[in-house]
Amino acid sequence: MKKIIMAVLSCVIAAGSMAGCGTAAEKSQGQTTQKSSFDASSEITVISREANSGTRGAFDELMKIVVEENGQKVDKLYSEAVLVDSTDAVSSKVEVDKYAIGYTSLGSVTDKVKALTVDGIEATAATVKSGQYKISRPFVLATKGDGNALSKDFISFVTSNQGQKAVEEKGFIKLDGAKDYTSAGLSGKLTLSGSTSVEKVIEKLKEEYIKLNPNVSIEITYSGSSAGIKDVTEGKVDIGMSSRELKDSEKAVLTPTIFAHDGIAVIVNKENPLNGLTSAQITKIFTGEQRTWSGADK
């Protein structure tokens, strides 16, 4: 009996020390991140978003990942690209993978990853606004027809000076020539659905709006741009939120209002020595034509 207890104890201790090793390994990984052992001949980990994400839609179009061939649209994304279903998942994957490249909303770039210059232009609110930084897309609120009084009032708030202040605070690019908003004292329930990329800014806008209109309650579901457009078309919600421009077929039934612009930053791991890429290189990497980092800095 004693023997057994001894054996078990030793196992537990072994497990414990393994746990210790585990955390040690974790730490050493953290250290290698600082010490830089970047092997440029390694394969690039291409990270993209799920099909139909608003961010991916905009990125694919601007970077020519989806191209027209013989009158058909063909998605050329590298077949082994890692696909993730949210803005933060891209950053998390890039953060723990030395050889990764991904793209994410400019407002979501954290200090744990590095944003690259594209064609020599840094991704900032200013360069997006001036049009120098090319990878950007609008944030759109869409209503069916003109929308009800409450939606109209909310949209007029969002595009007003007060609303645009919140847009700027959250790291997005505001509109020019906004007017002041005064509350019309409306009440009721407003429902929105759509893009996950707009979450940060729209939550802020909601708070500010409710401060001015305490009798209004707002419910927001984040499901993705296409789902938001579908929901508002079907009348499930009052306003659809999109992080890409509406398609012509969608514009036929919906009224879009652009309320902000957002740059799409191309991000890599902090350990990556590279500081910038050209759009042509980005296209090559995301279509799988270029597989290692060593070719990229040429």
Partner: peptide, 17 residues
């Protein structure tokens, strides 16, 4: 990398129409 049936559903459901 590998993609399963379940992942296909959950990751694209929100975006699909």
């Amino acid at each position: 990398s590998v993609r399963t049936l379940t992942v296909n559903i959950v990751s694209e459901m929100g975006y699909a129409s």
